[in-house]
Design a protein around this nucleic acid. Structure first.
Length: 516
RNA sequence: GCGGACAUAGUGUAGUGGUUAGCACGCAAGCUUCCCAAGCUUGCUACCCGGGUUCGAAUCCCGGUGUCCGCACCA
C-alpha cells in the first residue's frame, strides 16, 4: 500500500494522527487512536509471547523512562549520542565536525568530545565545503537526548532515555537475584524511548518518542547453548557485509547451520537470527520475500557491537527496505561500563559455574515501525472478479472493490463484530449475543448498527476485524448464527454455543517451544 | 538542519482579489431491504496559525507551524 493512502486510512479510521493537531501538529510526535492503541498492545503482546517465551529465564520488566546523567555518561550516550554541529558564519550551512575532519584526512575522530574536535578544526582552519569561506564556527554539541532539569531545585541533570536497553542493564544485578541465578538471563523491556531527532520524517519511522521492544540476553560467552538443530535448515535471507563490499544489493539465502559452520557466526547468534525471522514470517506474517538481514560492517556498526545484522523489510509505502529490528552482539560492553561507572562488581557466579562478566545479545524491535509495516503489508484493495454477472439470487456477488486489512486475527484491534441483519428486528438480540461474548469469553466485540449489512461488513474488513457474527430471523428461532470469515468472506451457520470454541485459538499468537 | 514543493469539511479534491467556498466519498437521522459499500428523503462538517497589502484576501506579501521529496543525520 502506498504512503498517502495508508496515512489517510489510518487517520480516518482512528489508528493514529499527528499529536497536538489542533495547534498545527508537532513534528515527530503521533497519537494512537482506539484502533491503533489496540493493535499496538496486541503487537506488543505477540512480541512478548514470542521473545520472552524463548526461555523460562527471560522476563519482562518496566524500568523508569528517566535516567540520571551518570547512566548516560557510562553508557556513552552523553559523548557519542551527539552531533558536534559546526555552522558556517558566511552561508549558514551546518556540518558535523567529525565528518569534516574525516573528509580532510583526519582519522579516528569518532566519539571525541566537541572541544577536542574544535581544537583540531582550528588547527586545520578548514574552508566551508559549500561556500569556501573560512568562517566555520566551533563545534556545538547537539545532543539527541532530551535533557531534564531534575529534582526540586532543578540542579540535577537527568535525561529521557534514548533507548530502553539501559533500563535492562541497570536492572541486571537485581534481576540476578529475582531470577534463578542462572545464565542465560533475559531481560525484556517494552516502552517509550526519546530522541530529539533533527528531521523527523515518514510518520512512524523517525519519531521523537517511539516504542521499542527489546530483549537483552545476558550469557556466559563460553557457555551459551542453543537448540541450533531446530533451525539449522532454516534459510536466512542474509546480505553479508563482505558481499555488500563486492557490490551485492540483494540477500542470498543461507541456512542457519551454514552461517555457523562456514559463515563465521556463533551458533547463539544464528539461532536468534532464525527466531527473529520466524517472528516476522510466522507471527507477523510478513511475506518471506520482503525480509532480509543486512549485516553492518565494522565502520557502520557501533564500535562495541561485535556482530550486527539489521532486520529489514521492503515496504511499498516507503519505497524500499526499512529497518524494523536488529540483532546486536554487544559483548561485555554494557556491564563493563556500568560496572565501572557505578563502582559495582557486576560479575556473577552461576550455580556450579565460574564467575563471569556476562555478554549481551540484544534483540531489538521497533513497535511503531512494525505497526506501520502491518498496514503496508496487510492492507489490500481487492477488485471484484471481472466476470461476476451470473451470480444467483441472494448470492455473494461483489460489486465494488473492498479494502481488507488481512491482519492475523490475534493482532486485530476488534475480534468479533456482531451484526443485526435488520436493525429493528435483530438489534436487541445482537446486543445480547455481544454482551455474552464479552462477558463469558473476554472477546473484544463491536456491534455495528447503521448502514446496510454489506457496508458494515466492508467497514469491519477495513479495520481488520477477523470475524463477523450475523443475527437473522433464524437466530431468533433456533439460536444459530452465521459466522463470516474476513478474508474468504465464507459463512457458516452454527449454534451460538459453538462459536467461542471455534474462534478462541485464533486469537492466541504463536509462540516458540518453551524450553526449560 | 539546508534546499524545493505543498497546506480548503473526517478523507480526497475544485476554486488566480468580490463565490450562499463547489464536488465525490464519508458520517448521521428516517424510509426501504433478512446477507456483502444498493436506492430514496433530510441533515453535518473546511479555507493551518499570526501579521501585512487592499474598500475587500482561501486567493497577493512576510513570519511561523506542519507534511512530503532531495541532501545531511540516524552513538
Amino acid at each position: 500500500m502506498q504512503f498517502e493512502e495508508l496515512l489517510s486510512l489510518f487517520k480516518r479510521r482512528g489508528v493514529l494522527w499527528p499529536s497536538a493537531e489542533i495547534y498545527g501538529g508537532t513534528a515527530g510526535l503521533y497519537d494512537y487512536g482506539p484502533a491503533g492503541t489496540a493493535l499496538k498492545r496486541r503487537l506488543e503482546a505477540a512480541w512478548s509471547s514470542w521473545f520472552v517465551g524463548l526461555s523460562p529465564n527471560y522476563h519482562l520488566i518496566d524500568p523508569a523512562e528517566i535516567v540520571p546523567e551518570a547512566v548516560v555518561r557510562s553508557s556513552g550516550h552523553l559523548a557519542h549520542f551527539a552531533d558536534p554541529d559546526v555552522t558556517c558564519g558566511k552561508c549558514g550551512q551546518h556540518f558535523r565536525a567529525d565528518t569534516l575532519l574525516e573528509e580532510n584526512g583526519v582519522a579516528d575522530v569518532e566519539g571525541l568530545a566537541p572541544e577536542v574536535l574544535g581544537r583540531m578544526l582550528q588547527e586545520k582552519n578548514l574552508p566551508c565545503p559549500r561556500c569556501g569561506e573560512r568562517a566555520l564556527s566551533l563545534p556545538r554539541a547537539f545532543n539527541l537526548m532530551f535533557g531534564l532539569d531534575f529534582g526540586a531545585a532543578g540542579k540535577e541533570r537527568a535525561y529521557l532515555r534514548p533507548e530502553t536497553a539501559q533500563g535492562a542493564y541497570l536492572s541486571f544485578s537485581r534481576m540476578w537475584e529475582v531470577g534463578r541465578n542462572q545464565l542465560p538471563l533475559g531481560i525484556a523491556v517494552i516502552g517509550k524511548a526519546y530522541r530529539n531527532e533533527i528531521a523527523p520524517r515518514n510518520v512512524l519511522f523517525r519519531m521523537r518518542a517511539f516504542t521499542q521492544a527489546e530483549l537483552q540476553i545476558f550469557f556466559d560467552p563460553e557457555n551459551f547453548s542453543v537448540p541450533l538443530d531446530e533451525v539449522a535448515g532454516e534459510e536466512l535471507p542474509c546480505l553479508r557485509a563482505k558481499d555488500r563490499e563486492k557490490g551485492a544489493t540483494e540477500p542470498t539465502p543461507i541456512r542457519a547451520g551454514e552461517l555457523v559452520s562456514s559463515g563465521g557466526i556463533p551458533s547463539f547468534y544464528a539461532y536468534h537470527l532464525a527466531m527473529m525471522l520466524r517472528f516476522f514470517r510466522d507471527v507477523l506474517q510478513y511475506p518471506a520475500d520482503r525480509v532480509r538481514f543486512l549485516e553492518k560492517n565494522e565502520k557502520e556498526r557501533a564500535f562495541y557491537n561485535r556482530i550486527h545484522f539489521d532486520a529489514e523489510v521492503r515496504l511499498d509505502s516507503l519505497g524500499g527496505y526499512k529497518e524494523l529490528g536488529a540483532v546486536h552482539y554487544r559483548g561485555d560492553y554494557d556491564l563493563s561500563r556500568h560496572g565501572e561507572g557505578s563502582k559495582t562488581d557486576l560479575r556473577v557466579t552461576p550455580t556450579g559455574g565460574k564467575t563471569v562478566l556476562p555478554h549481551v545479545l540484544e534483540l531489538t524491535f521497533g513497535v511503531d515501525r512494525n505497526l506501520w509495516a502491518l498496514g503496508d503489508l496487510h492492507l489490500r484493495v481487492e477488485t471484484p472478479a471481472a466476470a461476476s454477472g451470473g451470480a444467483a439470487e441472494g448470492g455473494q456477488e461483489e460489486k465494488e472493490p473492498r479494502t481488507v486489512w488481512a491482519l492475523p486475527p490475534y493482532l486485530a484491534p476488534m475480534q468479533i463484530a456482531v451484526l443485526p441483519l435488520i436493525r429493528k428486528v435483530h438489534a436487541a438480540k445482537a446486543d445480547e449475543v455481544a454482551e455474552r461474548l464479552r462477558r463469558e469469553d473476554g472477546f473484544t466485540v463491536v456491534v455495528p448498527l447503521t448502514a446496510s449489512v454489506g457496508k458494515r461488513y466492508a467497514r469491519e474488513d477495513e479495520l481488520a476485524t477477523p470475524f463477523a457474527v450475523t443475527i437473522d430471523n433464524q437466530t431468533m428461532q433456533d439460536g444459530t448464527i452465521t459466522l463470516r470469515e474476513r478474508d474468504s468472506r465464507a459463512q457458516v451457520r452454527l449454534p451460538l454455543e459453538a462459536l467461542a470454541g471455534r474462534v478462541r485459538s485464533k486469537f492466541v499468537p504463536p509462540r516458540p517451544t518453551f524450553r526449560a
